[in-house]
Amino acid sequence: MNIIGLYNYWIVVLLMMIGFYIVIAHENLIKKLVGLSIFQTSVFFFYISMGKISGATAPILDEKWQLYSNPLPHVLILTAIVVGIATTALGLSLVVRIQEAYGSIEESEIQVQDTHDELENHLEAYGPGPNFAILNQDLNK
């Protein structure tokens, strides 16, 4: 009984973790955002699951029904979905700008370019010094 009662939550955890994994393991900025939205959606499952009561119906009050699922998690998740889409929209517009500025949306390629920027700042400021070699090495890696 114990196992079956919690089975649903475990699947949700699995989904959450897949999303979370995409966010932290992948380098493509778009894919990260997809991961993020999967992660968030899975959290929504979790909320909605806890609001469910076996044998109950949607919380639209009517005289025919006695048992309703809990409306509060629904409300919360409505809000959370909105927040999610807001984040996604903003994130996407950032990705678009990054693509324009760097010509790439892969984290590692962007990092290389950033290191290059650092290097230029450094050269301009101090001339080639001991740190220069280190930075250069980073760049060539």
């Binding site: 966010v23 993020l36 992660f39 903003l90 994130g91 990054i98 500025a101 760097y102």
Partner: peptide, 21 residues
């Protein structure tokens, strides 16, 4: 103004959203 502001913001967005989640 620096283009690195964009990546910084993106990084913050991802980390911040994970935090919020």
């Amino acid at each position: 103004t620096d283009r690195r502001a964009l990546t910084a913001s993106y990084q913050y967005l991802v980390m911040g959203t994970i935090g919020a989640t």
